[in-house]
Design a protein around this nucleic acid. Structure first.
Lengths: 346, 346
DNA sequence: CTGAAAGCGCTAACAA
DNA sequence: TTGTTAGCGCTTTCAG
């Protein structure tokens, strides 16, 4: 069955397409009789407007593009879920792409998204991404871009991030409150702003508690994996004075560290406390359950979409486009892996 | 900066848009001089074709719609990843929607997807879905639909599923091979075909091993949650002759059951073995590690997209559309939760 | 209250 | 080799 067009309806009723179009959109000046006739035949022919024609006419795609490093990741699927929920309420759809943490692929997919036709872009930068010219080029075409999670100060754009500094500070302070004194940090790569912030929060907490910063207690991941967490935990334990607590930049790294510590015969949290970042669902199910800093993933998706849709609207109304930076608080989830059974058994 | 159009290029060179269009598409009959001139100015003006105009002209959206019950689910995000990888190779994009396991919402989003404009649909039915008239209606508009994971025999459409029967059979047979004799099953709701198949595989294995089917050893989930797994495990243990092994329809249910069994003081796997379905990443990390039947999620996404793209092509070529049913094997992952330490300590 | 006509940007058959 | 023309399906002036 071919899709019915305005012309089909018009022909059936002996009127013009303009009349039909108006009748369907509840225009003021239209006779009740024709309106009802049009509505009836539209119903009968199962009419639905051709989306392409409508969009071409209005110069609006009603689509937002989303680029994440990796779809198969609990944090990102949560963010995506938030995005989908918000944009669908306003009749927009979501086109999804992944960069696989590759700068090249990120350039490719953002350009493809622009070529395919989107009204705006929601992007989480890949770990490899330093330069943001590819995004600036899109902005030059009046395509609004909102960054989330991994953002860049180089780009004049709205962004939504977790308060990584505060989350990291809270995590480190919690360990220190528990009586641990030699707190190490497995940090992420230097490029994404958010892992730098976690590092800064860690340092700030040490300073606030009057503890020295010890470079040998800091390791830097490349790929931010389970395996790296394990490797660095082993490296730390080989130090003359090994740390008694580890704050890891991610849950995967934390879990890798815990696995390695157990294999080395260290008890968690008695000998070494561990705390991660992101609060994956697994954290609760592991033994010991893993303390972690929860990122408001779903809320990030929602806020980022709201900002993007606002900018799209402002652009359409030829109003000045306002950029905002939204920082959402992280929530520390204290579980077994960071709680010293009896802080001071004295 | 406004997006350049064919007309802009044409005006600059004093030719018509038709010439420009042809030059850009490497038409045979075009002078080298004009072709180069066009290419040069196109480059200079940063020309990219207006996707809407192209699509309206060719009557092709270059977009496939995807409907899953829940984006935030490791199985589905894996499937989606497979879909995205395949369709992007052919210049298509993915529009994502979720039904939240609601029949009503599934109807709404599939219609929205049709209204928005997609060339085809990849759908995993919600647990609530029994009737498939909403999908049949879309097929009537020559919109190809491919079902995956949760499918329906009511719809004449291609489908890609896990071999749930074989997976369930293997899981049950494995338990029986380990020496467990009273194997219970926590099954899913009756509607989705796949949980029925798991139930059938369970029964077939019992029969093959000459064991009776005991109705009191079967419980049926509604929501397929952690909590239900826990509740049914407790129910089983209250039986006069409780089972010594449980095959659960999903990992969440299996993990819930294990949690409850531990709380009741039963050891897993010594007193009761447990095996789940889906092989979530957590299974490996829990204590005891949880045996499970792995579904080829990424491959399901790939195969389903391949079938859909084939049908879209066939439709465009006005060839007959062929439907296929692809059944991909499940793989049993044996871990600690289902392995009797010493089968016969005799 | 409704029709006629223009146009969104691009493509393709037909002329020249 | 290039221009002319028509049209994809819809919206929106401008007339009447």
């Amino acid at each position: 069955m071919k899709r019915a067009t305005l012309r089909d309806i018009a022909r059936e009723l002996g009127v013009t397409v303009a009349t039909v179009s108006r009748a369907l959109k509840d225009y003021p000046d239209i006779s009740l009789a024709t309106k009802q006739a049009v509505l009836a035949t539209a119903e009968r022919l199962n009419y639905t407007p051709n989306p392409l024609a409508v969009k071409l006419r209005q110069q609006a795609y009603k689509v937002v593009g989303v680029v994440v490093p990796d779809i198969v990741h609990p944090f990102f699927s949560d963010v995506i879920s938030g995005i989908v929920d918000v944009v669908e309420e306003l009749g927009y759809h979501v086109i999804l792409s992944q960069s696989n943490e590759s700068y090249e692929k990120e350039i490719r997919v953002t350009q493809m998204l622009h070529a395919t036709g989107v009204d705006g872009l929601l992007v989480c930068l890949s770990n490899e991404t330093v330069a943001v010219d590819h995004l600036r080029a899109l902005q030059d075409y009046d395509l609004p871009v909102v960054l989330f999670d991994k953002t860049s100060a180089e780009l004049a754009a709205s962004s939504v991030v977790t308060n990584d500094f505060q989350g990291a500070y809270d995590a480190t302070a919690h360990l220190l409150d528990q009586g641990y004194t030699r707190v190490a940090h497995i940090k992420g790569p230097t490029h994404p702003e958010n892992t730098r912030q976690r590092f800064a929060g860690y340092q700030a907490a040490l300073t606030a508690y009057g503890l020295p910063f010890r470079p040998e207690y800091v390791a830097e991941c490349q790929a931010v994996t389970h395996a790296e967490g394990a490797a660095f935990a082993q490296q730390f334990m080989r130090l003359p004075e090994p740390p008694d607590a580890i704050f890891a930049v991610s849950d995967s790294v934390a879990i890798g560290a815990i696995t390695a510590l157990k294999e080395m015969g260290r008890r968690v949290p008695e000998d070494v406390a561990v705390i991660g970042f992101s609060d994956w669902a697994v954290c609760e199910l592991l033994t010991p359950s893993v303390s972690s800093v929860a990122q408001p993933a779903y809320a990030i998706g929602r806020r980022a979409s709201e900002l993007l849709l606002r900018e799209i609207q402002q652009l359409r109304d030829e109003q000045p486009v306002e950029h905002s930076r939204v920082v959402l608080d992280a929530v520390l989830k204290v579980r077994a892996s960071s709680q010293r059974p009896e802080s001071n058994p004295e």
